[in-house]
Amino acid sequence: MENIERRRFLKIGLTSAAGLMVGSFFGFSNTSKQIDVNNYDDLLKFDWGYIVDTTKCIGCGSCVRACSVENSVPDTFFRTWVERYEINKDEKIRVDSPKGAIESFNEDNFAPEDIVKAFFVPKICNHCYNSACTQVCPVGATFHSPDGVVLIDKEHCIGCGYCVQACPYGCRFIDHHKGTADKCTLCYHRIHKGEIPACVNACPRSARVFGNLKDPNSIIRKILHERRYGLLKADLGTNPKCYYIGLDIEVK
């Protein structure tokens, strides 16, 4: 009798726990917001942009790990990475990003008591409006998608590496297995289904925000209206589309 009670208890307990888990997965995940893209004109309704809030990033590296898994990024190369800036009491600046912070940051470079200022800066392809990489591609293998993402046609790329040289941000690399250029696609395979990029999804601090710049009511637009932001290497005229909140002068 007691056994049957216990079995029932376990059964109900486990079922409800599983139910809660599955339910919360759907309830809390903010990944899916169905968008309708049926033809070319539908794509023109979007201009995907990106915000990095450097004041929120804690350098956990979840974004780098998520990107690596989602996009099978080859070893030693990075579609996104996190930089750590430390300034000590002698005003020395030390920047590092060990393995792109895929294993987070384990040790301080300066003695903790000497550090007067420290912050993390996630980096990603800027998907520039006036991108140098698409300008220099000799075969037109890299291009702007109608919804504002810089993509690479890996069936067409010849692997000359000119785009790698031209990108001022170090966001591109040659994937030696495929012999072609590679970089962040803003998880294009996800976003055109209405999901958010893997790195945005993985960030526990919402330091990364993704959205449609053409939609005046989008969260990304609202943040850009409220906050002060900076751009990386704005003087080069690439007109990047990754906006940095709390950008420090030391960040290049």
Partner: peptide, 18 residues
Amino acid sequence: LGRPERAFNIMLTPNFTS
């Protein structure tokens, strides 16, 4: 070149901004 077999793309589909 990473993909030398595609070298002729440079003449077949030239991107003249490059």
